[in-house]
Every structure is written in C-alpha cells, then in structure tokens.
Nucleic acid binder design. Structure first.
Ligand code: FES
Ligand code: FES
Lengths: 153, 153
DNA sequence: TTAAATTTGATTGGATTGGTCAAGATTCAC
DNA sequence: GTGAATCTTGACCAATCCAATCAAATTTAA
C-alpha cells in the first residue's frame, strides 16, 4: 500500500471531522487552516468522500461537512480503498481489486505467496482501525506528543 | 508499499537466479523466456540489480548473470528499497527515506502513528524474508500448487 | 437580494511508469 | 583475427497518474 498525498489529506480531514460533534458541520476553510491542506484540493477530496458516502455536506452560508456515520464504523481500509484502490502491493493478491500479472503460473508463484502475507498484514491492521481510533490517538498525542509512537509497550 | 511491475520483474528474476547453481551464469534470454518478461526491459532491470550489488555478470558468448551473494543474505526489503524506494506508506514514517509531510505537528499526528504500525508490519516481513525463501517457496509450490497460499497452518 | 459557502468538472504542468531502441564493449569458439 | 553471442550504456517515447488550480454553477442563511 502507498498513501498518496490525496489519501493523506483525506484521512486527516476525516480526523478533524471526527473530532467535532456529529450534529454540526465544519467548513472546508477550517479544515484547510487547521491541517495545512490546500483549500481547492481539499474541496475535490471532500467531494469524493461525499460521493463515497463517508461524509455529508450542507451548502450555503452555514454550510460545511460532517461524518455521515459514526466514526467507529468507518474503517481506514474502506477509505483508502475508495481513494487509492488496492491495499495489496501487487494486483495478483488483492481481494477487492484483483488483477492478473504476467507470471506464467500464478498458482506456483513464490513472489505471490510472499506478497500475500504482506497484503494480509496490511489489511489486518487497516480493517480494524477506524476514524474513531484516529480521533482517540489524536487526543492522546495532544497530551503526550510522540513518545516514539509506541502503542505496543 | 507498492510493487511496480519493474520491482516484480526484479524479484522474479532473482528467484530464477537463486534457483540455479551459484557457479554458473544464466542468460537474460533464459530468464525472459521462463518468466515471461520483456527482454529489453529485463536488461535494464538486471543492470540496476548489478550496480546495486545484488547480481554480477559475465559478458561475451558464454555470458549471463548470477547472484553476487548467497541468496540467504539478500533480504527482499533491500531489493525493494533499491528499486522502489521506501517501504513505508508515507514518507514521514520511513526509516531510510524520511520525508516531512505537510502536517502542522508531526509529533502529534494520529495518522502518522497509525501509518508507523503499517510500516513496521511490512518491514518486519520483508526484512526477514530473503531470496532463499523465494527459492524455497518456489520449490514447495512446484509440488503443491497454491493451496490457498497458506504458510501459517 | 446578496454574501458565503459548497459543487462540479475542466485543465494544467510535472513526474512516474512501462517499455523500446541503437551503438558499443566484451568474451569465446573457430 | 573474425564473428557471433552476450552484456552495457544511455537516450528516447507514449501513456498514465498526481497534485494542484480555476471558473462557473448552485445552494442557503440572513
Ligand atoms: S503471480 Fe503475481 S507476481 Fe507471480
Ligand atoms: S505527520 Fe505525516 S501524516 Fe501527519
């Protein structure tokens, strides 16, 4: 998996939306300022997130965006798949975006068997992490910045 | 991590080289035929692998390529880093190819803490797998194709 | 009505990717 | 030495993707 800037922006924007109460909307400008994201680009991205069903918007002078579901039910894997496509490092081991590759015999490809493990490791993490986790971590990091990013000790 | 076709070809070529005895060379044409890789493109790739020190070549009529070290001491992570760059999904969590991103405060970025876990999962796998493992798996798969790719049961 | 906001889609410049090609250098068999 | 088979080097190309910008349309609150 590789996260392009587009996807990075999207997840950061979702974090901001997840941090604010579900019943009021947040303006693009606010997100753009807080997260240091080019505004025009962010418009495009939020629009994609809307058509994908992750957020909803209100237009007009008191307009803005909010999450359209509870943050706990938006797995990062779903968001990334919508914006970037497959999680797997190669198409031949992707569950949702399978693509044949040029190998003469896929069922005997050693590389494929290795890449499948990589895919599973990535998918396992990202399927179980949600926007709610991002919000939780943001809160924790606000108190105790960085700490080597250790969540495992 | 994302493996481009270039990287896929490289690893498949290395598998072929790893499968043949260390003291004799394999021609580009042979690899190209066996693995179904465009020959001209493969020339380019093997050349990169040579300058990176993974393989060495003999020219002339009895020329070809061979691994320049034991297959056990060529971790897949090293190969991929040379050909594709970082393993990490985003620059800000990469060990060898760190790049700052636009986040206002990296040390309090929730997304970063998540992506670090993804990076570690990927790196852990790929640092510990070598070309020798590819060869081993290729052998196993030749006998028992696919089997759902299960190495864990 | 009007100002402020999102919506939509076109467009751009630059980088990356997958791949080809030609000319040269090296080695070995004869 | 000649020639054939091979690697070496680096230029080249077309297509696609990426980050970002822009303009115009639409919606809504006040
Ligand atoms: S089948 Fe995809 S790399 Fe071999
Ligand atoms: S610091 Fe890289 S995504 Fe926030």
């Amino acid at each position: 998996m590789k996260l392009s800037v587009r996807g990075e922006y999207a997840l950061r924007a979702l974090t901001v939306l997840g941090e604010s109460p579900r019943d009021c909307v947040v303006r693009i400008q606010t997100i753009s300022d807080r997260e240091n994201i080019p505004k025009r680009f962010l418009e495009q991205i939020l629009n994609e997130l809307r058509t994908a069903g992750f957020v909803e918007s209100r237009r007009g002078i008191a307009g803005g965006y909010r999450l359209s579901r509870a943050p706990e039910s938006i797995p990062l894997a779903a968001v990334i798949r919508h914006l970037e496509g497959k999680l797997a490092p190669v198409g031949c081991v992707s569950e949702k975006f399978y693509e044949r590759c040029s190998c003469p015999d896929e069922s005997r490809c050693a590389l494929r068997s290795v890449m499948k493990e990589v895919r599973d490791a990535i998918a396992n993490l990202l399927e179980n992490l949600t926007v709610a986790d991002l919000v939780k971590r943001a809160g924790a990091l606000r108190v105790k910045p960085d700490m080597g990013l250790d969540y495992s000790i």
